[in-house]
């Protein structure tokens, strides 16, 4: 399941990025130009297309947490101590995702 989620995440990232570029190519390439020339140190989403790209990145970064959660039943059978550690890892990822 995790592997399919990874493929889905990559497709979603490419699609949302293509949408962002096609919606306002001039602005995107201006931003890229600024980034390459060291004039951009932060990027904040401004349009709905920007948010889609950001949500695609969020989705991709949560795949590991989903994978760990899916593996919990078998982990509990194999080692309860490691299952507890896995739960802590999921918690750390969600905490980091929520906002540090």
């Amino acid at each position: 399941m995790t592997q399919w989620l990874v493929y889905a995440a990559f497709v979603i990232m490419v699609v949302t990025l293509a949408l962002r570029i096609s919606a306002d190519p001039q602005n995107v390439f201006l931003q890229l130009n600024d980034a390459v020339n060291g004039k951009m140190d932060t990027w904040r989403p401004a349009t709905p297309y920007d948010y889609w790209v950001l949500y695609a990145l969020y989705f991709t970064n949560l795949i590991v947490a989903v994978g760990l959660a899916a593996s919990l039943p078998s982990l509990i059978k194999e080692s309860k101590a490691v299952a507890v550690v896995a739960i802590i890892l999921i918690f750390i990822i969600l905490l980091a995702a929520h906002r540090l």
Binding site: I21, A35, L57, N61, V64, I93, L100
Partner: peptide, 28 residues
Amino acid sequence: IGIANSATLWVFLHSNKLNPEIYIVSGL
């Protein structure tokens, strides 16, 4: 690396230290 860095990446996302094109195009 795959498991551990998935938390670290949030630091850069929440700090807005990214450019979507550089991020996604480089990664893929």
